[in-house]
């Protein structure tokens, strides 16, 4: 999962206070009567990130594509997202409770903060609602809550793939730029990058950037430039999101290190792909978010309606490494909003 830029809006005290009061209103305790006799279809509730997050926009597109099939069978798909990421775990837990009380017949939920969310998810499972974890939490948390399965990527595995790719391309000292320090997912990614690099005699190091640079590519770019200037042995940069990758590309250019410092990133966007195509960026690690939204909603609906469930558990949607060799087909996907 990627809470990158939004998670950093923690400085908006007033905003979070308002959002808290909003979610507090919407979160009612789970009623005992949780399954209203709906018509013939299945009402699927999806708890995901903010739709304004580019990453979650793609997940939502996947969910909407799957929703066509659900709706054709007479059901509905409802997307529930938090107002912001300041209080993500409790907010997501409340959204699960909201889904239960709204009469969900299947729930798809990202288990970002298991400590805060699992209780609510267990309430859904106890009420007999099929639950599928996706995007975050892994199969361990799905086992812990009694959910059917986990559909998503493994951040650590993805990080290892990135670290290896950078090291194999010749990088010896790789900087993992973490603009959401403290987030378990991003820490796992950076840890993976370091371990992947270590497999090929390179070292990985983390550069945590604070929330005061939230949504400001200039501040992030200049901070990365400073780190590159300060330590000339750094010859590889891996960022946790696409906007940070754009900032890092600018930083490498500003530091006059084009060609000397390799760039790679988690997640995809058109500009990443253009850089990969023209050779100024090494790779982008795709966890295929569209597939997460699509598969999770389909699986939840299919199980609730027909008892169909994929046998492989967990269902991994990534990592898929985009490099110069496969960039063209991916570019077409980004233009369509599915990658």
């Amino acid at each position: 999962m990627k809470i990158s830029r939004f998670a950093k809006a923690t400085s908006l005290f007033a905003v979070s206070a308002l959002a808290l009061s909003l979610t507090a209103c919407s979160a009612s305790p789970a009623p005992s009567e949780s399954k209203p006799a709906s018509t013939d279809g299945i009402d699927v509730y999806v708890i995901g990130g903010m739709p304004s997050d580019p990453f979650w926009g793609v997940v939502k597109s996947g969910a909407e594509a799957a929703a066509n099939a659900v709706e054709a069978a007479g059901g509905t798909v409802t997307w529930l997202g938090p107002q912001n990421y300041d209080n993500l775990g409790p907010d997501a837990g409340k959204l699960v409770d909201s889904a239960i009380s709204a009469g969900a017949e299947a729930i798809v939920v990202a288990d970002w903060v298991p400590d805060a969310e699992n209780e609510a998810i267990k309430r859904a499972v106890a009420a007999g609602i099929p639950v599928i974890h996706y995007n975050a939490g892994g199969i361990e948390q799905a086992d812990a809550t009694g959910a059917l399965t986990y559909i998503g990527a493994d951040d650590y595995v993805a990080g290892v793939a990135g670290g290896e790719a950078a090291a194999l391309a010749g990088a010896k000292h790789i900087l993992c730029v973490n603009t959401v320090p403290g987030s378990a997912n991003q820490e796992a990614r950076c840890a993976g990058v370091a371990d992947g690099a270590a497999k090929h005699d390179a070292t990985g190091e983390q550069l945590p950037l604070p929330s005061s640079n939230f949504g400001n590519p200039t501040a992030v770019a200049n901070a990365i430039k400073a780190a590159l200037t300060k330590d000339p042995t750094i010859d590889g940069v891996v960022t946790i999101g696409v906007q940070d990758a754009d900032s890092a590309a600018s930083a490498i250019e500003q530091a006059g290190l084009t060609g000397k410092v390799q760039l790679g990133t988690f997640d995809l966007s058109e500009t990443q792909l253009n850089r990969i195509k023209d050779g100024t960026q090494l790779f982008a690690i795709d966890q295929q978010p569209w597939l997460q939204g699509y598969l999770a909603v389909s699986a939840a609906w299919q199980y609730a309606q027909y008892g169909i469930l994929p046998a492989s558990r967990p269902v991994l949607t990534g990592p898929s490494l985009v490099t110069k060799s496969n960039v063209d087909v991916v570019i077409a996907g980004v233009a369509a909003g599915v990658r």
Binding site: R5, F6, K8, A9, S11, L12, S52, D53, P54, S211, S212, N213, F214, G215, N216, P217, T218, A219, Q243, D246, S247, S250, S269, E270, T271
Partner: peptide, 14 residues
């Protein structure tokens, strides 16, 4: 400068 826009930009300036 960065050849594009994202809907989430700018909040740090508040």
């Amino acid at each position: 400068m960065y050849n594009g826009a994202q809907v989430a930009n700018g909040q740090s300036f508040v």
